[in-house]
Amino acid sequence: MTLIDLANPSRFLSLAGRILPWLVAVTVLVLAIGLYQSATAPDDYQQGATVKIMFIHVPNAWLSMFVWSVMSVAALGTLVWRHPLADVAAKTAAPIGAAFTFLALLTGSLWGRPMWGTYWEWDARLTSVLILFLMYLGLMALWRAVEDPSRAARAAAVLTLVGAINIPIIKFSVDWWNTLHQPASVIRMGGTTLDRAFLIPLLVMAVGFTLLFLTLHIAAMRNEILRRRVRTLQMLQASKSAA
């Protein structure tokens, strides 16, 4: 089965129906292992037990960027290949991505309260994620503002790609701005200095959350295809009764 076969929505629906139960099972299993491992992980000598927040904060932050890349690939599919499922994939990824980005912000802020003494620090990473969250909301506003789905899809695709180019620039600018305005006083968890005892639960949780996103995304895509089928049938019926 190639990508072009999936262009047929009915074929996607049947494939999704076959895959989803397995995906749900694997997701639950991996998340359960990850949760058990993060519960039994030792405390950090510097941060104490609050390091446990990292196991859910980092996967959400990773997903906030991963979902935008998924949407960018879908946007290319919309603009370049006019793949019919790309619109559906892009539209349904946006609210899920926004939810994960919100969770990254929320857990980051709850982690920041014991570490920095304040819920919100204009820390470079938190600020970048906040801007990313605003961009997700803008994209969702765009999807909601337009009635015709294919017209909205093309506009959203352009905006998604412009965002994909801009996100690294924004990240760089915010890092620069942050170093200008405050010396690095916050406690950071460097990626390379992370101990194995933390790294393995973190990786398992990251895989689990990515699987969770895939499951939710495929299920939401199925819903969206059905929603469009409802819309088409209603329009067919309306034109029939008008004739």
């Binding site: 909301l137 803008g138 765009l142 620039i169 924004i170 600018s173």
Partner: peptide, 16 residues
């Protein structure tokens, strides 16, 4: 809608 979409993109220009 225009403002909501464009303003985040102009953050780098504002910063520098």
């Amino acid at each position: 809608l225009l403002s909501v979409l464009v303003l985040p993109l102009s953050i780098p220009v504002l910063i520098f």
